[in-house]
Every structure is written in structure tokens, then in C-alpha cells.
């Protein structure tokens, strides 16, 4: 309440500013006028009186000032950045807790999420890009497995097919794959300039086999090229000191994250998981061999 308003009210009411000389219905109408709740006729009538009666105008100003403070409490105009951040964090926290509660209730009652939603909607958000560099050991392991896998694939494919850095001779001691049926593996290799097969959506060239790995990978990695993987392709190859035959850019970020972080598998589609697991299991078997 400003001094001016208070003084005006005091003058108007001869010092007793807490009891303005207005009847209660007029006072109530002033309040309704401030809230825009009067009929146009009544509002116009009051506005005319406000222009002529300082007492009424002072009372209206008092009531309006309180409304202003209340609006400022509800919608603070001068909220600091830290306060804004705190408020945002509170809302996010409530949202996360609410989602957990809803998921728990749905799990307890066996209710499926409504149609049109996927499990991803309620799954915890998994940052896919930021932790890429932190996954270097897993990337290295997978890439090594891929390189090994490709080498073996090349070994049993046509002589004209390109080979990886791990040459056939590297495996000549101890293990000698049967060229006719070496490891029951699908026959596939990565596309290279020398390859003559048609390029699939995922950049792999199928050589033969009804259930070839390109099919498997195409189904397991349905998303398009990954900018992130493309950027890291050269770096990864240099780190591993191998000539990667698989273009990692054909694999989506989510799929890469899945491949590198088994913990997140539960958050994605079951079919993709199974196919990925099959593929990774095959790679694992190869590595052990």
C-alpha cells in the first residue's frame, strides 16, 4: 500500500482508513470490477463514480494493490535465475516421481501402457551422445569383435573378397576353420570399393546365405546413418589401429548405445533386443574361439 493511497484513504474517511465510508455491496462491486466480473452497465456506472469520487477511487486503489501483490506472488516478474532453475528442478523432480508412480501402478495392476505409446515414453532418459567417449573400452571391445568377425567372414568367403587387418595367417595356428562349414556363420562382409554386391540400407554387402548377417543387422539396426558414429569412425579406427570394415555410421546411436551398454537393453523393444543379443552372442562366440 503506497503512502499516497493511504493518505488519500485517510483523508476520505477522516482518519479511520480501515473503515471506508462505503456500503458493503459497493465495496464488493469494486472488487468484482477489478476482477472483470461486473456487467458492462454496472462497470460503466462504477467507472463514472470513480472519476468523480476520490474516496471510492482510493478504496479501489487499495483493493487493486493487493491484487497486484497476489499476481506478483503467482507470477513473479523479478524472479532470479537461481530461483527459476530451482523451480524448474522441482517440476522435473515431481515429474520423474510421478512417472515412477504411474509405472509402478501399471506394473502392479498389469495394465499395459495405452495404445500409441511405447516403453520408451516411460523409460528413464538415456543420454546417448554425451557418454560416447566414456564408452571407449566397450567400443574397442565391440570393434575388435567386429574386426575379428569380419576377418573370419572374409576367410571363408571368396578369395576376391577383401580381408581385414587380421589376416588368415593370424588364425592358422591352433584353429583351422573348415572352409566348407567353418563356424556356421552367415556369409557376409562389409562393403568396400572392391565389393560387387548391392549396398543395403545399412551399408553392408550380402554375399550369400538365407539368414545373412546384413539381414540380421538391417533388422537390428533399423535407424538411419548416425552423424555421431560417422564422426567417430576414423578416431575409433585409429585408437584400435585396425582398418574397420564396418561403417559404424550405418548404426543408429540408440543401437550403438544398446550394443555398448547392456544395462539399457531392457528399455528398448524386445524384438530388437533379441536380434541384437543373437548378433552379440555370435560375436562373443567368435571372440572366444
Amino acid at each position: 500500500m503506497t503512502k499516497k493511497t493511504r493518505d488519500a484513504t485517510r483523508d476520505a474517511t477522516r482518519g479511520d482508513w480501515k473503515k471506508p465510508a462505503l456500503d458493503s455491496s459497493e465495496d464488493e462491486d469494486l472488487s468484482a470490477l477489478l476482477d472483470g466480473e461486473l456487467s458492462p452497465e454496472r462497470a460503466e456506472q462504477l467507472r463514472r463514480r470513480l472519476a468523480e469520487e476520490p474516496e471510492l477511487a482510493a478504496r479501489c486503489a487499495e483493493l487493486g494493490e493487493v491484487s497486484g501483490h497476489l499476481r506478483n506472488l503467482a507470477h513473479p516478474a523479478d524472479r532470479s535465475e537461481s530461483e527459476t532453475q530451482r523451480q524448474g528442478a522441482r517440476v522435473e523432480g515431481m515429474h520423474a516421481a510421478l512417472r515412477q508412480r504411474i509405472a509402478a501402478e501399471q506394473a502392479a495392476t498389469g495394465i499395459e501402457p495405452p495404445a500409441g505409446t511405447s516403453s520408451r515414453a516411460s523409460a528413464p532418459v538415456i543420454p546417448l551422445r554425451a557418454p560416447w567417449r566414456g564408452l571407449a573400452p566397450a567400443v574397442a571391445a565391440l570393434a575388435a569383435g567386429l574386426a575379428l568377425y569380419l576377418s573370419l567372414g572374409d576367410f571363408r568367403s571368396d578369395d576376391s573378397a577383401p580381408t581385414g587387418n587380421l589376416a588368415e595367417s593370424d588364425f592358422s595356428e591352433g584353429v583351422t576353420p573348415d572352409p566348407e562349414n567353418p563356424l556356421e556363420l552367415p556369409r557376409w562382409t562389409a562393403e568396400t570399393e572392391a565389393g560387387d554386391g548391392a549396398r543395403s540400407e545399412n551399408g553392408l554387402v550380402e554375399t550369400s546365405g538365407p539368414e545373412s548377417a546384413p539381414q540380421l543387422i538391417a533388422e537390428a539396426f533399423p535407424t538411419g546413418p548416425s552423424e555421431m558414429a560417422r564422426e567417430n569412425q576414423d578416431r575409433l579406427a585409429a585408437d584400435l589401429d585396425v582398418d574397420l570394415k564396418v561403417d559404424l555410421s550405418v548404426i543408429g546411436d540408440e543401437e550403438l548405445a544398446i550394443a555398448f551398454e547392456f544395462d539399457v537393453l531392457a528399455d528398448f523393444d524386445v524384438i530388437e533386443n533379441l536380434e541384437l543379443l543373437e548378433l552379440l552372442d555370435e560375436l562373443d562366440t567368435l571372440e572366444r574361439i
Partner: peptide, 20 residues
């Protein structure tokens, strides 16, 4: 509602006056 809003607003005006 009209009465509630006004009574609340008037009470605040009165209390704020006392306070100031």
C-alpha cells in the same frame, strides 16, 4: 465466490494497513 473474494481482499487491505 464474489463475496469470498471480496472479503479476502478487504481483509488483506485492512491487515496490510495495520502492518504498514
Amino acid at each position: 465466490v464474489k463475496a469470498l473474494v471480496h472479503r479476502g481482499r478487504a481483509a488483506l487491505v485492512s491487515r496490510m494497513g495495520n502492518c504498514t
